[in-house]
Simulated scan of single mutants.
Amino acid sequence: MMEAVGYASAVIRTAEANPPHEMIEPHDQYVRLGRNRQARREAYRALFREALDETVVDEIRAATNGGFVLGAARFREQIAAMLGRRVTPVQAGRLPRKDAVSAGPNRPQARPRRNGSHRRKNR
Rank of each mutant, 00 (worst) to 15 (best):
L33R: 07
M2K: 02
V87C: 03
S9K: 14
E3V: 12
R107N: 02
G93Q: 04
V5Q: 07
A63I: 06
Q78L: 13
V5F: 14
G34I: 08
R107L: 03
R32F: 05
R37D: 13
V56K: 11
G71N: 04
T55D: 08
T64Y: 12
L95N: 10
R32S: 13
Y30K: 01
G93K: 03
G66M: 03
G66V: 05
R41L: 04
E50Y: 03
R40W: 09
V11R: 06
G66Q: 02
A73Q: 10
G116S: 07
R123F: 13
V11P: 07
G104N: 01
G93D: 02
R94T: 12
R120M: 06
L70N: 00
R85V: 02
V57N: 00
D53I: 00
V69G: 03
R119P: 09
P108Q: 00
R49W: 05
A17F: 12
M1Y: 02
L95Y: 13
Q38C: 04
E3T: 11
I60F: 11
I24S: 03
I79F: 07
E59Q: 15
T88A: 07
E25H: 14
R114S: 12
N65R: 09
Q78N: 11
D53S: 06
P112S: 10
A62G: 04
H118V: 00
V69W: 01
A39L: 06
I79R: 02
R114E: 05
E25M: 11
R35I: 15
T64F: 15
G104Y: 01
P20H: 07
E54K: 07
F48Q: 00
A39W: 05
R40I: 05
I24M: 13
D53C: 08
I24P: 11
A43S: 14
A72K: 09
G34W: 11
R120H: 04
P112I: 01
R94D: 14
E16R: 10
R119D: 06
R35K: 10
E16D: 15
A15H: 05
Y30S: 04
R76D: 00
P108H: 05
N65K: 10
Q38A: 11
S102C: 09
G104M: 00
I60Q: 04
R85K: 15
A39D: 13
T88R: 01
Q91D: 10
V90P: 13
A15K: 03
A81Q: 08
P19G: 00
A8E: 05
T14C: 06
A100Y: 12
D99R: 14
S117Y: 13
N18M: 12
V90M: 10
M1S: 10
A62N: 05
R113V: 15
R85I: 04
R113P: 07
E54I: 13
R113A: 12
A72Q: 09
R86D: 08
D58G: 11
